[in-house]
Amino acid sequence: MSSGGLSEVDLSRIAVRGAVEIERTAGGLRPHRLPAWARVQVPDPFMRQTSAESSGVRLAFRTAATGLELEVSARRMAPDEASELPASRYELTSGGAVVAEAGAVAGSRYLFSFDDPRGLVVYGPPSTVRFAGLPPVETEYELWLPFTDAIEVLALRADAPVSPPLERPTVRWLHHGSSISHGYRADAPTGTWPAVAALATGVELTNLAFSGSAMLDPFTARTMRDRPADVISLKVGINLVNGDVMRMRAFRPAVDGFLDTLREGHPTVPIVVVSPIWCEPVESAAGPTVQDPTRTEEWSIAGGSVDDVAAGRLSLRAIRTALAEIVARRSAHDPNLAYLDGLELYGATDAATMPLPDNLHPGPDVQRLMGERFAELVLQPIVEAQPRG
């Protein structure tokens, strides 16, 4: 089958990176960031969509094609059937740099808002993403899928043969976090802070960050336990405060339990526990985070108080203190466990000059800043410590 001089590529000749499971469908393939057994345990409709979205997922291949065409069935979250969806962004990288980008509007919608959390799918037509003007020399590419969309890859077409990517030794980084790590308010698939850090250091990223759902879920811990990794990071705290879902009594053993599960599968792999970045409304006050009723735009404020923290509810400051204590206790017999204060990635001084646009989520500038700092503080030392071939 061909389209405008492009020939269809056997999808078995491409590699899918950043997914934990590849579902072969009647139409093509669907990357998943949770395995099937874990997906049935997802507890709410919001996480069903966000965990299906393609944050950090990319297609890897080699080709001398000057033109590429990707056909997908894409599903994006929307509040209703009538609102106009923005184009979802796809990026092509080579050697860690973006060499081309394209956009396509998702054909299907996942109807969800917190005022109307139906979680219904309205199916629509496939979307086609086109890249043109590529160099006519064999190049190894990664095609980054949009972090905003759940994607089924239906076809890849090219005007030259496509081969699997070369296998090269690399550090495998496995990360779990919240919408901040998923990419909410980032401006591109490679603009999420984990992608920025991965591309800067050449590591292979699997990003198990799920918007609204970094809740220390046991099925996430077991998924990570069973995945190959050379370094693991766990960024936890803000979603627990957002939803006011735990008290300190439950939080401490939940962190220990998550780490115990990771160690079952990764006895000596470096694990970095990352505490929350700066978020002024819930630094000292307890959650939940709620929308400021005096504003028309998104603007988060604390729903709890400082006194609530004294009674056992969670603030970001309380979480940072607890995480530091837990890691200090465990690291006495686990030398490969480390703590990174999230304020080193984005703190109060940064907030004065680079404020969060909705008082909660980093914009593109802060996403890049966090990625650059994580690369320098965590990933680059690990990469440099790898034995040279």
Rank of each mutant, 00 (worst) to 15 (best):
residue 147 F to M: 09
residue 148 T to E: 12
residue 134 L to P: 07
residue 132 A to P: 10
residue 140 E to P: 11
residue 152 E to S: 12
residue 149 D to T: 09
residue 144 W to V: 00
residue 146 P to Q: 03
residue 124 G to A: 05
residue 136 P to N: 00
residue 156 L to T: 06
residue 136 P to H: 00
residue 138 E to A: 07
residue 142 E to D: 12
residue 126 P to A: 10
residue 127 S to F: 08
residue 145 L to Q: 05
residue 134 L to R: 00
residue 137 V to F: 10
residue 156 L to Y: 00
residue 144 W to S: 07
residue 113 S to A: 03
residue 152 E to T: 15
residue 154 L to G: 11
residue 156 L to V: 05
residue 147 F to G: 08
residue 128 T to V: 15
residue 129 V to W: 06
residue 113 S to K: 06
residue 119 G to Q: 09
residue 157 R to H: 08
residue 156 L to A: 04
residue 140 E to N: 06
residue 145 L to N: 02
residue 138 E to Y: 00
residue 157 R to N: 04
residue 135 P to A: 10
residue 155 A to Y: 09
residue 119 G to C: 07
residue 119 G to D: 08
residue 128 T to H: 12
residue 124 G to L: 09
residue 149 D to P: 10
residue 139 T to S: 00
residue 134 L to N: 07
residue 145 L to T: 01
residue 145 L to V: 08
residue 149 D to Y: 06
residue 125 P to Y: 09
residue 122 V to K: 11
residue 132 A to E: 15
residue 132 A to N: 12
residue 130 R to P: 06
residue 113 S to D: 00
residue 135 P to H: 08
residue 149 D to V: 09
residue 137 V to Q: 11
residue 120 L to N: 10
residue 121 V to M: 12
residue 149 D to C: 11
residue 151 I to N: 01
residue 151 I to C: 07
residue 149 D to W: 04
residue 140 E to W: 04
residue 141 Y to N: 01
residue 156 L to P: 10
residue 154 L to S: 07
residue 113 S to Y: 05
residue 151 I to D: 06
residue 123 Y to A: 14
residue 125 P to R: 14
residue 137 V to M: 08
residue 118 R to T: 15
residue 144 W to T: 01
residue 152 E to A: 12
residue 155 A to P: 11
residue 135 P to G: 02
residue 120 L to K: 12
residue 124 G to W: 11
residue 118 R to H: 14
residue 137 V to T: 13
residue 127 S to V: 05
residue 113 S to L: 03
residue 120 L to I: 15
residue 119 G to S: 09
residue 156 L to F: 04
residue 129 V to S: 09
residue 137 V to A: 12
residue 123 Y to D: 15
residue 114 F to N: 05
residue 145 L to K: 08
residue 134 L to G: 00
residue 123 Y to K: 14
residue 151 I to H: 00
residue 153 V to L: 13
residue 125 P to L: 11
residue 125 P to M: 10
residue 142 E to R: 01
residue 154 L to C: 11
residue 138 E to H: 03
residue 135 P to E: 06
residue 126 P to M: 02
residue 144 W to C: 05
residue 134 L to C: 01
residue 145 L to M: 04
residue 118 R to Q: 14
residue 147 F to Y: 15
residue 123 Y to V: 15
residue 156 L to G: 03
residue 134 L to Y: 05
residue 135 P to N: 07
residue 113 S to E: 06
